[in-house]
Design a binder for these strands. Structure first.
Length: 598
RNA sequence: UGCCGAGUGGUGUAACGGUAGCACAGCAGACUCUGGAUCUGUUUGUCAUGGUUCGAAUCCAUGCUCGGCAGCCA
């Protein structure tokens, strides 16, 4: 089954888009995904990507990828590149024909309507240009146009240059339940504002000495309407525009106008921007723009149990070395999940399953895990691998004899075929599949007990050999030579079946076993002054030397395998020729673990 | 204590005045050469109180609870 063959999603935002499309409000639906390149994308962004690109594909529209890069001091090209890669990976084969990009280096076209400036820059039609000729949109590509819009706002008496210091600006703003006070610079003349703003741009003033502010209402119950800052002075190098500018627009000013310039119809963001919506609309309306205005809609961001989602916290984990990098397989980043082996289709299915609402809840990470297993169970070929090897000698099996057993590649998909696996006198089995004094309902090997070796023989354990300190180092067993799988007398039933590898033929591999990064469901709700890192799981990564069946020596990067009875695994990029490194994507559900806890 | 928003089983989400459903999780069982998968059954819910209505999760009122907002961050 195609994992994307799910019913068309429905939610309150799609309802709005559908109604707008129905009413013929727009010639085309245009959404946008606007990350700030100040960190790596995480699974919360994946939710947003699935929403925005999903709407684009369902309504025959486009979703522009835009870098929201208006703050030079926090943004870097490394982040731009990772964002591009992550988005492309996540939408590949699904909505990659809907991504809105622009010609490299292109900036908005200038149109003058009724003497007022207007700018437009739409996405380049697909297949018109090759991948090397296009790039994402950048808010910073609109700095010149935004500057013109700012001048227009000043001319209309809707913006002014304010000389208040940052501290005074705060003080004048008042509090949520206390009106603010007008800035003493609020009533400067248009000419003076124009002059000052141009000089701000020219670099005449140091950082923090002046701002451009919207002239709205210092007594507004919505603090974002209390003459919000539109431009600040920052003599800083910008990753995309270099040193061309020393004034930079604020989010609220840049975002709505970027949306407008690109012809966005539905600007979908998260709940915390709800209080900014009046400002979003105010700016666009104050400019009296000639084309249809974009509208902002808000949905609840994703919160996942047992992890953290804020870029600030993820950055902290990276910079403090708590994880190996942004793409550490334990990270909820898209690159981390990708390296871990999680597929894009699983992420999309997850996004579909959780839905879109305005309720700010916490999604159980089990929902994600289920989406991952569901696909992998269907798709992944099975292999035999032993994570913690315990040697087994079949005392009645001829020395030096090697036979091959016939193993099923994927019981969920017969067309995946079968493969030969070597079998011999000396084997490794999983240490935890043997217990000297097992509890009830332990269906694996025990002294005197029998177990089926998957695809091979039923064996009985005769003796557990121990070293001087009492550790079990080897099991001596006898095989029922009549019981070989597929053989004439194979139908004898035993309660347990375990996996194994042939000692002589198995290859060694490093296997990285990942567990949740945090020990508590909500690490960032620890209460006052409790650092989320307190709850870091010290055992989130365990590395073992495993033995895996020889066919895995040819495992390919990007391949995903189920090691039978254990979980799903994929090759890590750290692998070298002859040095396999596997990541455990996710373990199989383990109902024995549950039983054992009782 | 100003403004904005949200409350449906353990979690997430449907039902748009007409049988409260789905998914995940849980539990019980069947089946199984993966204690996987699959199948069957099943526990648990409309924040509260009033009102409108033949009928309310849905409409109205009041209250309660939770989240967001006072960056020259986004």
């Amino acid at each position: 089954m195609n994992p994307d063959a799910v019913p068309t999603p429905s939610d309150f935002i799609r309802d709005i888009v559908a109604a707008d499309a129905q009413a013929g409000k727009y010639s085309q639906i245009v959404t946008r995904f606007p990350p700030e390149p100040n960190g790596y994308l995480h699974i919360g962004h994946a939710k947003s990507i699935c929403l925005n690109f999903g709407i684009a594909r369902e309504f025959g529209g486009v979703c522009n990828l835009r870098m929201d890069d208006t703050n030079p001091t926090k943004e870097e090209v490394e982040y731009v590149e990772s964002i591009l890669e992550d988005v492309k990976w996540l939408i590949a084969g699904w909505a990659d024909d809907r991504i809105g990009l622009k010609r490299k280096g292109q900036t908005p076209d200038r149109v003058v309507r009724d003497g007022h400036p207007d700018f437009h820059l739409g996405a380049v039609p697909r297949n018109l240009l090759s991948a090397t000729e296009v790039e994402p949109f950048y808010a910073s590509d609109y700095f010149a146009q935004l500057y013109e819009y700012a001048l227009e706002l000043i001319r209309r008496g809707r913006a002014y240059v304010c000389d208040l210091s940052p501290g005074d600006t705060d003080a004048y703003r008042g509090a949520p339940d206390r009106a603010g006070q007008d800035s003493p610079f609020r009533n400067r003349t248009v000419a003076e504002n124009l002059d000052l703003f141009q000089r701000m741009k020219a670099g005449e003033f140091p950082d923090g000495t002046r701002t451009l502010r919207a002239r709205i209402d210092m007594a507004s119950p919505n603090v974002w309407m209390r003459d919000p800052v539109l431009y600040r002075i920052r003599h800083a190098e910008h990753h995309h525009t270099g040193d061309a500018w020393c004034i930079y627009p604020m989010y609220d000013f840049a975002h709505c106008l970027s949306d407008y310039i690109e012809g966005i119809t539905h600007s979908i963001c998260t709940l915390e921007f709800e209080v900014h919506r009046p400002l979003y609309d105010w700016i666009l309306e104050a400019l009296d723009l000639p084309r249809p205005l974009p509208h902002q809609f808000e949905f609840a961001r994703l919160n996942l149990s047992y992890t953290v989602m804020s870029k600030r916290k993820l950055l902290q984990l990276v910079s403090e070395g708590r994880v190996k990098g942004w793409d550490d397989p334990r990270m909820p980043t898209i690159s981390g999940l990708r390296r871990r082996g999680v597929t894009a289709t699983a992420l999309r299915r997850f996004a579909y399953n959780i839905g879109v609402t305005k309720y700010n809840g916490v999604t159980d990470v089990a929902v994600l895990e289920h989406a991952i297993r569901e696909e992998l169970n269907r798709e992944a070929e099975r292999r035999l691998g032993v994570l913690r090897p315990l040697k087994v000698v079949l005392t009645n099996y001829p020395e030096g004899k090697v036979e091959t057993v016939d193993a099923v590649n994927n019981p969920e998909n017969p067309s995946a075929g079968r493969r030969p696996v070597p079998f011999g006198r000396e084997l490794y089995i999983e240490r935890e599949d043997f217990m000297e004094a097992p509890p009830p309902k332990f269906f694996r090997l025990r002294p005197g007990g029998e177990v089926r070796l998957k695809y091979a023989y039923i064996v009985r354990c005769d003796e557990a050999v121990k070293d001087a300190s009492g550790n079990i180092v080897e099991l001596r067993c006898t095989a029922d030579l009549e019981s070989k799988s597929g053989g004439a007398h194979a139908d004898r039933k035993v309660k347990g079946t375990i996996h194994w590898v042939s000692a002589a033929e198995a290859v060694e591999a490093e296997v990285r076993l990942y567990d949740r990064l945090f020990t508590v469901a909500q690490p960032d709700s620890g209460g006052e002054g409790v650092d989320f890192k307190t709850f870091l799981n010290p055992r989130s990564l365990e590395t073992v030397r495993a033995r895996v069946e020889p066919s895995l020596a040819e495992a390919d990067m990007g391949g995903r395998y189920q090691f039978e009875r254990l979980g799903y695994f994929c090759l890590d990029p750290d692998s070298r020729r002859g040095q396999l490194v596997f990541n455990r994507i996710i373990p199989l559900k383990d109902s024995w673990a549950k039983e054992a806890r009782k």
